[in-house]
C-alpha cells in the first residue's frame, strides 16, 4: 500500500557489524526488531519499547542510540554495531572482562545495552565517578543495584571509585 507521498515498505541498506544487509522492510519496523528478527542478532534486548531502559542500545555511526525508539528506515545507510561485535574471536574486551570479574551482571538482560553505551564514548570525557554514574543512568539494571557496574567501569577507565557518603 502506498500513498502519493510515501510508501509502507522501504528498501534499506545498512552495515551491521561490518556486514552489509539489504532488505525491503515495513516502514514501521523498529530497528530493534530489524536487528533481532530480520538479521538474527538477538544479543540486543528489548526491555521497554519506549526508549527508557536502554537494553536495546546499539551504536549507529559511532553514537549510542535506543534501537526500540528508532525506525529501521531511519538508519538507512548507517553503520550499526551490536554487542556481538565487541569481542573478537571470543576474546573478551577489557570492559567485558571487568563486568565478569566485578560481578557487574546478574541476569545479563541489560548487559549488552550497558556495554554498547560504554563502547560508544571516549573515556577521557568521564574522569570523575559522578560522570560515570550520570552516563550509566541511561541504562536500567534491575539486578545489580548498579554498584558493581560502576566499579567495573571505573576499574577499566582508571577512575577513582565512586565515593561513599558523598565525601
Amino acid at each position: 500500500m502506498t500513498s502519493d507521498q510515501g510508501s509502507r515498505e522501504i528498501d534499506l541498506t545498512v552495515t551491521i557489524n561490518g556486514m552489509e544487509v539489504r532488505r525491503r522492510v515495513p516502514a514501521r519496523l523498529l530497528l530493534s526488531d530489524f536487528i533481532r528478527d530480520e538479521v538474527g542478532l538477538t544479543g540486543t534486548h528489548v526491555g521497554c519499547e519506549h526508549g527508557y531502559c536502554g537494553a536495546c542500545t546499539v551504536i549507529a555511526d559511532g553514537d549510542a542510540i535506543r534501537s526500540c525508539s528508532t525506525l529501521a528506515v531511519q538508519v538507512d545507510g548507517s553503520d550499526i554495531r551490536t554487542v556481538e561485535d565487541l569481542a573478537s574471536d571470543g576474546e573478551l574486551t577489557p570492559m567485558q572482562q571487568a563486568f565478569h570479574e566485578n560481578h557487574a551482571m546478574q541476569c545479563g538482560f541489560c548487559t549488552a545495552g550497558f556495554l554498547m553505551t560504554l563502547e560508544s564514548v571516549d573515556p577521557d570525557d568521564y574522569r570523575e565517578p559522578e560522570q560515570v554514574v550520570e552516563l550509566l543512568s541511561g541504562n536500567l539494571c534491575r539486578c545489580t543495584g548498579y554498584q558493581n557496574i560502576v566499579k567495573a567501569v571505573c576499574s577499566v577507565w582508571g577512575v577513582e571509585g565512586r565515593r561513599r557518603d558523598s565525601q
Binding site: 500500500m1 510515501g6 509502507r8 514501521r28
Partner: peptide, 11 residues
C-alpha cells in the same frame, strides 16, 4: 507495543 502502519517518505 508496535507502531500502527503508516506511509513513509524522505524528501
Amino acid at each position: 507495543m508496535k507502531p500502527a502502519a503508516f506511509d513513509y517518505c524522505r524528501p
